[in-house]
Design a protein around this nucleic acid. Sequence first.
DNA 1: CAAATAATTGCAGAATATTGCAAATTATTA
DNA 2: TAATAATTTGCAATATTCTGCAATTATTTG
Lengths: 251, 251
Amino acid sequence: MASMLKEERLDYILKKLQTDQKVLQTELSTDLQVSEDTVRRDLEALAQSGQLIKVRGGAIPHSPNPYSFKERVERHAADKQLMARKALTLLHDGQTVLMDGGTSTLALVKLLPPQLRLTIITNSVPIVTQLIEHPTIEVIFTGGRIGKNSQTATGMDTIRAMQKIRADLAFVGICSLHPEAGVTGLDLEEADVKSVMIEAANKIVALATSDKMDTAEPFKVCEITGIDVIVTDKPQLPLFKPYQDLGIQVI
Amino acid sequence: MASMLKEERLDYILKKLQTDQKVLQTELSTDLQVSEDTVRRDLEALAQSGQLIKVRGGAIPHSPNPYSFKERVERHAADKQLMARKALTLLHDGQTVLMDGGTSTLALVKLLPPQLRLTIITNSVPIVTQLIEHPTIEVIFTGGRIGKNSQTATGMDTIRAMQKIRADLAFVGICSLHPEAGVTGLDLEEADVKSVMIEAANKIVALATSDKMDTAEPFKVCEITGIDVIVTDKPQLPLFKPYQDLGIQVI
DNA sequence: CAAATAATTGCAGAATATTGCAAATTATTA
DNA sequence: TAATAATTTGCAATATTCTGCAATTATTTG
């Protein structure tokens, strides 16, 4: 095999990290046909230049994900990807789209094909980070104080920025959905932002894994009728019937 | 074999780089029937004129957009770190600080010690990403359309957000400084943002490697007297004398 | 045209960098 | 706590780069 430049290895590592959200030294060692020591030194270098975070046995991406190495292996990752693929069918060239923060919407953003032309308005730092590399998507960040936990902007500035917008679609990562209680969330500020987003778009799409259905949290976002489409992992479950009866499309 | 012109070799190297996305010195040496030293010197020349990036053992192409953010981070990395360490001495608990986008300010942000309590307002995505993990720094992002190359927000929203602020300090990554031409930049929108920042803070700190001194670009940011402190890599150089005579602190 | 000058090339040896290995140390898990 | 896995450290083998220099080939100039 032709010798490989160090830079190629580093590229490979970063690319793999991007797609898998983690890399293992043992895997990289066989992938790249070099010793684990060399892999370790490569990761060391990448960590040094701030391009990843080295952990025991491998590495994880930098900030966009706040969870630990173990946790990252992975809450509903497959479900979210399935939902994201369904949600993708709602997107078309030329649309203006609001994107809520959250891991479900982030999964969607990761799947956006490279030629799709959209304008995406978001208050989520990880989503901006993901989209900044995308060649044909215009990104608008709403601004404001950044919450360390949610990695989103909230507060007056964000709300005001959202209010100036009229979007075709809004994708909302849902905390809880309930036929009577409506859409509710755990955090007041985030709930406020979601409700403004819902007012600012023509069509509202909720991304919700089925375990979030028929539950409620302290802070109200909007009535359940504010939602037009629910994208979920198991749309065939009978618990979605009440929502469909209210005229909500479930896919 | 007929002797080969240097130009022909360079052409061959670039063509091979285009198709393979990398070239190895050993390969080129046998392909072109010249010594590895000559190949090295050829690569040196091509790197000098910005047509590829020379790495140990060969060369790789540089990213399609001329001088991507990542490449700019690598450029003068050591100098920038030195400057960042000096700039650190200007920061104290409780300050409100404006941070321009750019690789010099990013280097500074990377060095912020974990207990330092600041409020940082920035229009730079990489800076936000970096700071989101910091435990004691409040981050405010100015919002707006995100430029893919500079990875910063520019435009009316950003400017308006900046104008609402009164900061203790502003750190400005400088494109060019000149005693008569003042502070100038390559991009109109970014220059506008910088000039608003400079109006919005009490004390203005310019981060500028010495190669940016006594040069000028098309778009004016402000007069040279708008700057209070220049942080640079080689403050002892005589070329800083005129700035000091104007009452600007050079460190 | 011929001599002087400059540029290019290859080479040898010294200086550096990279890589893999093994032993000692440290963290993690059962 | 023992057993296992991962990291650190020092080191040797190899590969690459740097340096000065001499030979060769172009280019300029009187």
